[in-house]
Design a protein around this nucleic acid. Structure first.
Length: 755
DNA sequence: AGCACGCCGACT
DNA sequence: GTCGGCGTGCTC
């Protein structure tokens, strides 16, 4: 016998509960995950709608109490069905529970109650109501009395009723039962009304037609994709366009064509990357038929935006990765801007990557996918080169902008010149020059992934793990630890490469840079942008607009300033320590460094004035730095791909990260060792030991958080499906063994962030 | 959301 | 007794 887990009346019920029904033999074929069904429910066996979310052969409930599915609605593959199948795919692919997957895919109405305003009104005159009130008082109908009295203002003899009463208030504060309100409604004394308050982040605006002239390259790409689309092809495209090449114009052109064909569009953007300028461009072109979500939106507000989409009130949804689940009925296109961004990977379960999910949704809904980036992820570029995605390039800047001139300054040379300041002589000179010319400067500190690595100030040598080729992390007790394999060694007193004693843990903060700038250039007006100064609600926006209005000469900040902002008066970008992010202890360090450098350099010379970029580094010879300075993505890709191939890091192979966390350190270590052993045994029984690399267990980079100890195991395998099998196997193992009671184990496929 | 059950005060 | 109002819990 087959059984189906069914969620009833999705939009209302909370998704924690599913009910199991048996599948009659004649429905076996049609009963697929996502199907819309009719089932008998409750004591009266009244028929209600539901969706199949899972199918199994075991009954989780008393078999004699399981009812059969009454009917499977034909062509019931409505939008909810699509999203449920998507949830199931996410569950299978990224290893999560069906519940978690469903919750991310379908917005729950529960939290929406505050947005959906339900009110109670009197259906009769105040006078009549007064009469009823007297009757109820005599009969001692406390609930009814409380409800009616609420309509009259305090101790006023004259029956002067207030117009409406908040439903929530009546139920919670006045303690009136749902049934009481229903009864009164039946008698005809009151009526209830639901009002949905939609809120639109920006108010309606006239659509000014801004006709954009596309460059030849832009037009070529837009035309190709539009032609494919009209011919009925649904593909995945990768647009590799240098910073400032005008990818947005290409998107706009394609979007308007897709909308003209009656289809809807989802545009994904990385968190906080959406600037006011971009929003306005979309509004100007598409007016109020777009909706914008941001990560600050409450669940209720998000639900609201989704309902507008479902009702067909909008054509375009713009937002972070959760916008991917917008319930558009006829989705035609998903655009993913800055596809390399790590915020597209969810950090809590289900730990899905929006790129993979977008492609799957495209497949289910019949939509094309466009990925865009100035610095594509290796994953995407590899697929593009293999022909799985169609690749387009925009090699030059659009309009007035020219690619900036890039200088590399070797910081080891500066030390030889006895320049101990954080600015190279050349950078100082250029800063002074821009201050004189009243042009603007951005100073960028690369703090990404910084985790106390140890480097030599004299030769730039960095202490690395002999087994994993990631940098070692300095701990307070004077040892250096590799967070991939657990290798340990003691802190050297002099540099193993050149013998200099200038070897130490490294780091520079934004405040320190700000101080140094003020000391060196007392006349400059400086703005600082980091997590400290952007804590307030629109601190972010304030600093950026102040800088855009030229209220400051120099903007000092971390990676948050490199995201797609357009400051035409910026003609100099200084990257103070380009290699800092190279030594993050994870395999994506070089890729991230390349991305940061290119994006940061991309801020210079976006207006009429030509720009210059100074990259300061201890490692000018490193390929990620030299490639970034020459804008040589292909060169970078080849080198980095070599490294990944050699060490079997993604996309050369797939990696499963297993986090074992426990309050008790010994239990965490013990559990981690058990899991490591189980993984090894599993690989042996599957006969894939040659192709499976198990690393660890070792302490995580964040080895202890909130008094919880964290250990990691990494498993590398070229075939993704084996990693899923392994995860299922280990989950079974954990359930079976009693050594995991005090432990929390989490799985992450192809992680983007280090643990 | 609907339905039933159990509790309580009021009235036959 | 028993009826109607009220509050609560459950639905595979």
């Amino acid at each position: 016998m087959h059984y189906a887990d069914i969620i009833v009346d999705i939009s209302h019920e909370n998704l924690d509960k599913s009910y199991q029904y048996s599948i009659p033999e004649e429905f076996r074929e049609e009963a697929i995950i996502g199907a819309l069904v009719i089932v008998p429910f409750g004591k009266g066996n009244r028929f209600i709608k539901g969706y199949i979310v899972d199918i199994s052969e075991t009954a989780k409930w008393k078999v004699e109490l399981i009812k059969p599915i009454h009917q499977i609605v034909p062509n019931g593959l409505v939008i909810e069905s699509q999203l449920i199948s998507l949830a199931y795919w996410i569950k299978e692919t990224f290893g999560a529970t069906m519940n978690d997957a469903l919750k991310t895919v379908i917005p729950v109405k529960k939290s929406v109650k505050s947005i959906e305003k339900k009110t109670i009104r009197l259906a009769i005159s105040a006078e009549e109501a007064g009469n009823y009130l007297e009757v109820f008082k005599k009969k001692n109908n406390k609930g009814r009395v409380r409800l009616l009295e609420a309509f009259f203002s305090d101790s006023d003899e004259q029956p002067q009723a207030i117009e409406e009463l908040d439903y929530e208030l009546a139920v919670n504060k006045l303690n009136i039962a749902r049934t009481t309100i229903q009864d009164l409604e039946k008698i005809g004394i009151i009526t209830t009304k639901v009002e949905r308050l939609y809120r639109n982040p920006l108010s309606n605006r006239e659509t000014e037609y801004e006709s954009i002239l596309l460059s030849k390259e832009q037009k070529f790409i837009a035309d190709e994709i539009i032609r494919d689309y009209k011919a009925g092809f649904r593909k995945t495209y990768l647009i590799h366009g240098v910073t400032g090449s005008g990818k947005t114009e290409v998107y706009l052109e394609i979007i308007s064509s897709v909308i003209k064909q009656g289809k809807k569009v989802i545009m994904l953007i990385p968190e906080i990357a959406l600037t006011y300028q971009t929003v306005m461009r979309f509004y100007k072109r598409f007016g109020s038929r777009i909706s914008i979500m941001n990560s600050r939106l409450s669940q209720g507000e998000r639900y609201d935006q989704f309902m507008r989409a479902k009702n067909g009130d909008i054509d375009i949804m713009i937002g972070p990765r959760s916008a991917l689940f917008t319930p558009f009925k006829d989705l035609g296109l998903i655009i993913m801007d800055e596809e390399h961004e790590s915020s597209y990977k969810s950090e809590n379960p289900p730990k899905y990557h929006a790129r993979e999910v977008a492609i799957k949704r495209g497949e289910l809904s019949g939509a094309s996918i466009i990925l865009g980036s100035a610095t594509p992820s290796l994953e995407s570029y590899k697929k593009a080169l293999q022909g799985e995605y169609k690749l387009f390039t925009l090699p030059s800047r659009n309009g007035e902008g020219r690619m900036p001139k890039i200088w590399i300054e070797d910081l080891r040379e500066e030390l030889k010149k006895k320049n101990k300041s954080i600015f190279s002589l050349h950078l100082k000179e250029l800063i002074q020059d821009r201050l004189n010319k009243k042009e603007q400067i951005i100073l960028f500190i690369n703090r990404r992934g910084y985790a106390g690595f140890v480097s030599c100030r004299s030769c730039g040598f960095v202490m690395k793990c002999p087994h994993c080729d990631v940098s070692l992390t300095a701990h307070n007790n004077g040892t250096l630890i590799c967070h991939y394999c657990g290798h340990e060694e003691s802190m050297p007193s002099k540099c193993p490469s050149c013998g200099s004693k200038y070897i130490a843990a490294f780091g520079t903060g934004t405040q320190k840079v700000e101080e140094m700038v003020k000391k060196e250039f007392p006349e400059a007006r400086v703005l600082r942008m980091d997590t400290d100064t952007t804590k307030t609600k629109d601190g972010h926006e304030k600093i950026l607009s102040a800088f855009a209005n030229q209220e400051a000469d120099i903007l000092v900040g971390t990676q948050m300033i490199v995201k797609g902002h357009d400051f035409p008066m910026v003609t100099l970008v200084g990257i103070l320590a380009a290699d800092l992010s190279l030594y993050a202890s994870d395999y994506r360090a070089a890729e991230r460094t390349y991305q940061l450098l290119v994006q940061a350099a991309g801020r210079a010379g976006r207006g009429r004035l030509p720009g210059e970029v100074v990259i300061q580094t201890y490692q000018p010879e490193h390929y990620s730095i030299s490639a970034a300075s020459n804008n040589d993505y292909d060169g970078f890709y080849k080198q980095e791909m070599n490294y990944r191939d050699l060490l079997k890091y993604p996309p050369a192979a797939h990696i499963l990260a297993i986090l074992i966390a426990s309050k008790d350190e010994n239990k965490a270590i013990f559990a981690a060792k058990l899991l490591g052993g189980a993984a090894k045994e599993w690989a042996e029984t599957e006969q894939i030991t040659e192709d499976t690399i198990i690393i660890g267990p070792a302490a995580a980079v964040l080895s202890k958080a909130n008094d919880i100890y964290r250990y990691m195991i990494y498993v590398k395998q070229s075939d993704y499906k084996y990693l899923i099998l392994l995860k299922n196997y280990l989950e079974g193992y954990i359930n079976f063994s009693e050594h995991f009671e005090m432990c929390n184990v989490q799985f992450d496929f192809n992680p983007m962030n280090s643990y």
